[in-house]
Design a protein around this nucleic acid. Sequence first.
DNA 1: GTATATCGAACGAACGTTCGGTACGATTTT
DNA 2: AAAATCGTACCGAACGTTCGTTCGATATAC
Lengths: 201, 201
Amino acid sequence: MPEVPVKRVSRRPRGEALREAILGAALRLFSDRGYFNTSIHDIRREAGVSIGAIYHHFGNKEQLAKALYDDLLERMGRAIEATIGGHSGYRERARAVIELLFDMTRDDPETMRFVLLAKHREFLSDEPPICSSRPFAIMRGLLEDGIAAGDVREMDPWVAASAMFGGALRMMSLSLDGVLEEGLARYIDEVVESGWRAVRA
Amino acid sequence: MPEVPVKRVSRRPRGEALREAILGAALRLFSDRGYFNTSIHDIRREAGVSIGAIYHHFGNKEQLAKALYDDLLERMGRAIEATIGGHSGYRERARAVIELLFDMTRDDPETMRFVLLAKHREFLSDEPPICSSRPFAIMRGLLEDGIAAGDVREMDPWVAASAMFGGALRMMSLSLDGVLEEGLARYIDEVVESGWRAVRA
DNA sequence: GTATATCGAACGAACGTTCGGTACGATTTT
DNA sequence: AAAATCGTACCGAACGTTCGTTCGATATAC
């Protein structure tokens, strides 16, 4: 059996691994204290890299935040698309999306906090509002298709999407803020059903 | 009838008026650029006062933001309470609250932006999440009473409040982000009805 | 005269960024 | 195959700027 050449035994990560170490550290700190309460020096310490490495990979602090933001939204968008593709019927699809969002909130609260709660326009200049990002566009599209198919009542798509998913997003905020006694899973049925009652034909 | 003495003719505001000039300038700038993108020197310029006056009235930047935040939430809480008191029936009360919020979003978007969209915990240490503030507590209480009265279906009060008002709050965010083609008033019926469908008994 | 309110120059700390340097793998030269 | 060359990745001390805050002076009210 051919030996896989292990080129590197170096202790510190390099290249792509280092880039991801920086992104991970940035996510942790931005999510915990916010963008403006996190200095490049903090990220340097948390990631165990040098200042130079950060600037080499990302150019500056804002572009680092932008790279992180794009990366997370891209992942979320793909996950939501896959979830929708795996179900049929608009009610079931909406439920699957909310289940996915709830699971992500539990399993990866840092990502959710950064994506949902952060005020990106405060530190990302010229960033469009999050509602025009892919995950939100997909959710809105789902409602539009439901309306066209006659499964969702005739109403403005923005209102429909807000009604179907607004409650779920609010519950996620509550969970991230730590005001809910129990995990989000406990509320999934009530949330999905009330959202569906709001929009079903 | 005793004459009310008009004591002052001085050009620059002093005392309470100056305090409010500072709060107004702070609201405008915080709402427009965010807390961290606004310096005390900016507020000084915008309000036309001295740095010393700001520190005399508020102590430091964070306490200024806290005073502003408390002031706005207090006003909102009172307005919502008055609105609820002026209507009967839970559906009508909920509608009146949403109408009030929509009107405030149109007439005073700066306040709404600061109260709704700002990440207060990022700059106000030890501030509880906004959902535990008075306006939100009142809205949750409204749903609780509705459940007790049998007008709202039996469900978790957090879920009920999220379902009833989550869509409306989301629409307000969309409006503040400038993604809606028309004014919020155009959507009030659909928003209220879908919220009510979600929670009515 | 005294207390309170206002003023603004000055300060020190913290921050984002720069830049001259080193480490290292790949490629070419000897 | 060893040496030299090269480009990329990484390093971190140092820099200039900005910011929140201080404080002694000044103005005003009573």
